[in-house]
């Protein structure tokens, strides 16, 4: 249990650093921003209490905000994403004893289900984060373009990251 907690802590730090030091400086074709730090929320076990889930998600978003000079934007989007996590997962897998306490990944859910879950989570986050950042629905086309491009880019990156972790394990 302690090893698992330490691994999650290391993942938290690694993802925040990778996001603020590398990904925040990449804008593919001026529209696609890679968002990889939400992988931590996606990976959190389904058996984790909701209070902890909200707390970790808020702290994750807040940590990225501190380094990105966008206080509140990612913290709010991450907290909202945490609320969506369970309904989104259980939209694709049945809620029973087998799925009560699992770590969502390629190996535990299977490629097809995991890809759907990952895409939904990434799309939801991109839509929320860009809407909060633009905060003006006069720019709805800009929000849609940025969110969809970033969603596709981040989805591919996270799928690659998951395959890498699957190979290692």
């Amino acid at each position: 249990m302690n090893k698992e907690v330490l691994l999650f802590f290391a993942l938290f730090i690694a993802l925040v650093l990778a996001q603020v030091l590398i990904c925040n400086h990449i804008i593919l074709f001026n529209v696609a921003v890679p968002i990889i730090f939400i992988y931590f929320i996606i990976r959190l076990p389904t058996g984790l209490g909701l209070n902890w889930l909200f707390t970790f998600s808020f702290l994750l978003g807040f940590s990225v905000d501190i380094f990105s000079d966008t206080p509140g934007v990612n913290a709010l989007a991450c907290t909202l994403l945490a609320v969506c996590k369970r309904p989104m997962l259980y939209a694709y897998v049945p809620r029973d004893d087998r799925t009560k306490d699992i770590i969502p990944s390629l190996s535990s859910l299977g490629p097809a289900v995991y890809a759907k879950y990952l895409l939904t989570m990434v799309a939801a986050f991109c839509l929320m984060a860009f809407s909060i950042e633009y905060f003006n629905f006069a720019n709805v086309s800009d929000i849609a373009i940025m969110a969809s491009a970033s969603c596709v880019f981040s989805f591919v990156l996270l799928l690659g990251l998951d395959s890498l972790m699957l190979t290692k394990s």
């Binding site: 909200f54 709010l76 609320v83």
Partner: peptide
């Protein structure tokens, strides 16, 4: 807990982001 974090995020958002 959820409402607390949402309110905290909104306070941060509206007090530190000029736009």
């Amino acid at each position: 807990v959820f409402l607390f974090y949402v309110v905290l995020s909104c306070v941060l958002l509206f007090s530190h982001n000029t736009f």
